[in-house]
Each structure stands twice: as C-alpha cells, then as structure tokens.
Amino acid sequence: MMIVAGQSQSAYFLEETSTVAETHTLSVLVDNEPGVLARVIGLFSGRGYNIESLTVSEVEHEKHLSRITVVTTGTPQVITQIMNQLGRLVPVHRVVNLTKMGEAIERELALVKVAGKGEHRVEALRLAQAFEARTVDATLESFVFELTGTPADIDRFVNLMTECGLVEVARTGLAALARGKMGM
C-alpha cells in the first residue's frame, strides 16, 4: 500500500515542514561507566535515528568522563530531538551540536593498506607523499599508510588508492572540537 504525501497522515507518518536532512556532528560528554555506549547506540537504533560515524574514548581519567562524537543526519527537528533524547540519559553530562556552533575542527585517522609492484607501487607512494600520509609499514609488495584529515580528505585518498592496489582500510571515525577558547 502506498502512502501518498499530503493525503493520509497520522503520527506514524510525520510530515516534516523542513524535509531537508542535514548532517550534524554532536559531542556528548558522558560518565565512563559500563553500558553507557549501549545506552547511546540503543537510543539511536530504538528511535530510528542515523549514525554515520561514532567515536568514543575516555578523555578525563580522574572524573571518569568519556567523549562520544557522533555524526548524524536528520531534519533540524529530528536533530533537536536527538539532542534532547541524549540529554535525558542519566550518564550524559552535556550534549553540544558542534555543527551549529560554527565550523568545528573535525579529524579522522585512517590506515590504508595497498599491495602491488612496479608503477602502482611508485604511484601509491607519490600520492601518499602528496597527502602527507605516513608510511607505517612497508614490505617489498605492500605499504600501510597512516593519514589524518577530514573525512573528505580520507575519502579522496582512499578513492585514489583503489587504482593503486588498495587492499583494505581502517578508519577511526570522527573526532571533533569546537574552535575558540571555550570548552563544552
């Protein structure tokens, strides 16, 4: 059965006034306690929100605080709802929308393995130098490069490497901070 927009609606088919999905980076400061990541992930899956990238690590050892950086997509209303729902979790201290606060610094680290001989190998090394990637492992037939940059930088690098014998990629997901002197 088709649901035609503008015809049959109930709460189960919410019509957003703004249907343009935006990508936002949220920074969430949480107590580093068992299950906290499951709470956050469960909230996203249970309520049908998207996770494009998620990183988590303890950032303040004495206070047992972890920072979760999550990249998500949704209409402005959904993004606000996600922030409010996150704020409802007991171990969550603060939720900040870095995208709304202006251009945040966003970085990701990737490990990229390529294998090959001859011209492919030379090209891979040349491109790695151009992207300022570090060579962290080398054999006669392979390299592992380490690259830090924006997700777009890494996408570009990985795309180029597919032509040069790309074997596999590991990416950390996004770490992000707001610019300026203020912390969250």
């Binding site: 609606q9 709460a11 409010n84 409802r88």
Partner: peptide
C-alpha cells in the same frame, strides 16, 4: 500523543501552542 492528535498535519491548525513539560524531549517531538 498520536491518540490525542489524530492526523497530525490537520491538528489544531490555527492555534498558537504553549507546552509545559518537565521533559525537554517532549517539546516539539510530535
């Protein structure tokens, strides 16, 4: 809640709405 609003795009179309709730996530949810 959806039992209250019925069809949401035709829900109380001409009113200004004030919402008192202790849970911030209830605001602007539906």
């Amino acid at each position: 809640d959806d039992r209250i609003t019925g069809r949401i795009d035709a829900f109380s179309p001409t009113s200004k709405k004030i919402h008192i709730d202790i849970d911030p996530s209830s605001i602007n949810k539906n």
